[in-house]
Design a protein around this nucleic acid. Structure first.
Length: 531
DNA sequence: ATTAGGG
DNA sequence: CCCTAAT
């Protein structure tokens, strides 16, 4: 019973966290209004009227009262999808996670006991609000675009005067600067007004409790009706709910994932000061939080779908992939073959870093898969298909090129030795069956480059005794490539001037095209006949 | 749908 | 890597 509040406080105190508790849930609310709300919250309790009735968090009442819950669901949803790599909703990047967490926590509070958890209405909702069905209402008052705006607020620390005093009212507000929120343009005021008004209205009409609240600005009853409609509509969409269930279970099979949040988060926005982090010192609480979170997932589903989640911004492919990869990376660890040591570039721990690291950042791009997973990626086929048909996708890939690893090169060489030149799709299928990247064309391009570079390197090697060729391919690979190049001459890529002499010399080093020395190059020469 | 070539 | 033309 007191656990919830306790938790709240704990987290409120955490350094890294920016969570506001209590009254901030109506951030821009004028004082009198705030007072009203507070009153409203406080009042019912003495009357044995569950506060959640007002906020619509009651089980039987869920979905009512304009869905404050929905807001929070939005956050939760965002978090979940982000982490799960689900292609549903883009949080603009970062950190709505904590919202989810907090929300979950709060949500659970009312489960814990008779604590009526009023949910958190974040100031950050702007982004989602417009999305949500009932945003229409807001739009009437507020047409401000919320795109790309961010709430610059909030390094402000949490303060929890108001409601924290009420032992049975837990109000969590996540005021996260990290959450994408329209700036001042976004009329929080109007929202708040409506919200409060709605609260009043609902409280009156549904709870039938006299609340000493002056209905200063009650929106037209139509608005209320709208909410109600919405509500009823939402409350019975079991199919959707089921859908969500599937979805959910797929993406979040185990709550332990939540624990990785910390790591994940820091990877994603290392620079953000406002990143919510689990405090190490709070391990117990973290665990609790995790379980709470998982619990709350179930409970929120219906309302999430109820609002017909449609977001303005879909998550970037990159974003999605990133998360999924990240997740899979955790599960499978970093498995690499022995050639990994020879990788041209260091492996990156987190995709997020890798996409920063390289690539031309002209346009939006898909995620850079972690090296370790490139051969195991399950989503390969999809990616591949899409890439081929939608030009847009190709635009995406352009963004970050992926270095070819030695192992990849070797596979490519193998493939060419098997299929010969020009069977790029075959090679792709056979040797890069699960690489989301590396289209047949890529293979060809790579091969084209390999030939050129190999010969160049070969030449240099002889002249300068390959010393400062730091990131050059290993000699044997070069040799193999040279051989293959002679065996399967690439049509349109003339060898850099040094044609035959170069080739012959190249072959001299290892094996003659006709008679392979039984060194490592043997397997390739044996198949030279396929041109 | 693939491949070749060029950018 | 991307794009386009040619198969």
């Amino acid at each position: 019973m007191d656990r919830g509040p306790h938790l709240l406080e704990n987290y409120a105190n955490a350094k890294t966290q920016r969570v506001k508790i209590d009254e901030s849930f109506v951030p821009a609310l004028k004082k009198d209004e705030a007072a009203e709300v507070e009153h409203l919250l406080a009042e019912p309790k003495s009357d044995n009227v569950p506060v959640d009735g007002v906020f619509g968090f009651n089980k039987e009442n869920s979905g009512k009262c304009l869905g404050l819950e929905d807001f929070s669901c939005g956050f939760e949803y965002g978090f979940r999808t982000n982490y799960g790599g689900l292609d549903l909703y883009n949080i603009q990047g970062e950190d709505d996670l904590k919202l989810e967490v907090l929300d979950g926590l709060l949500d659970d509070v009312d489960e814990v006991d008779d604590i009526h958890a009023a949910n958190a209405l974040s100031t950050a909702c702007g982004d989602f609000l417009l999305d949500i069905e009932f945003a229409e209402i807001f739009s009437a008052l507020d047409n401000h675009p919320i795109e790309g705006k961010r709430l610059g607020n909030s390094s402000s620390e949490s303060h929890s005067p108001g409601f924290s005093g009420n032992s049975n009212v837990a109000i969590g507000i996540s005021d996260s600067s990290t959450v994408t929120v329209p700036e001042s343009e976004w009329k929080i005021d109007s929202l708040d007004k409506i919200v409060t008004s709605e609260l009043h209205e609902n409280f009156r009409s549904k709870c039938e409790c006299q609340v000493p609240i002056e209905d200063k600005k009650c929106p037209s009853s139509t608005d209320v009706q709208k909410f109600d409609e919405l509500d009823s509509k939402n409350s019975r969409n079991s199919p959707d709910v089921q859908k969500f269930d599937e979805l959910d279970s797929k993406n979040f099979p185990n709550s332990p994932d939540v624990q990785k949040f910390d790591e994940l988060d820091s990877n994603k926005c290392p620079s953000s000061p406002n990143v919510y982090k689990f405090d190490d010192s709070d391990n117990d609480d973290n665990l609790l939080l995790s379980s709470l979170l998982s619990k709350c997932k179930k409970r929120k589903k219906s309302s999430i779908l109820g609002t017909r989640v449609k977001r303005l911004r879909r998550p970037t492919r990159r974003y999605i992939e990133e998360f999924s990869n990240l997740k899979s990376a955790y599960h499978m660890g970093e498995q690499k073959d022995s050639t990994a040591a020879l990788e041209k570039r260091p492996k990156v721990k987190a995709p997020s870093q890798s996409w920063l690291r390289q690539g031309r950042m002209k346009k939006a791009a898909p995620v850079l898969e972690s090296e370790s997973s490139d051969e195991y990626s399950a989503s390969e086929s999809d990616d591949y298909r899409e890439r081929k048909k939608k030009p847009k996708v190709s635009v995406d890939r352009r963004k970050h090129q992926r270095m070819w690893t030695l192992s990849e090169v070797m596979k490519l060489v193998d493939g060419i030795s098997q299929f010969g030149i020009g069977k790029w799709t075959a090679i792709k299928k056979l040797l890069f069956p699960s690489s989301t990247h590396r289209t047949p064309i890529d293979l060809r391009d790579k091969w084209r480059n390999l030939i050129r570079s190999s010969f160049a390197q070969k030449r240099n090697e002889r002249e300068v005794e390959q010393k400062h060729i730091a990131r050059a391919l290993p000699n044997d690979v070069i040799t193999r490539i040279c051989e293959l190049a002679t065996i399967h001459p690439y049509p349109s890529v003339p060898y850099p001037r040094v044609r035959n002499s170069e080739i012959s010399s190249c072959n001299d080093h290892v094996a003659s095209p006709e008679l392979p020395t039984e060194t490592e190059s043997a397997p390739y020469n044996t198949r030279k006949k396929c041109t």
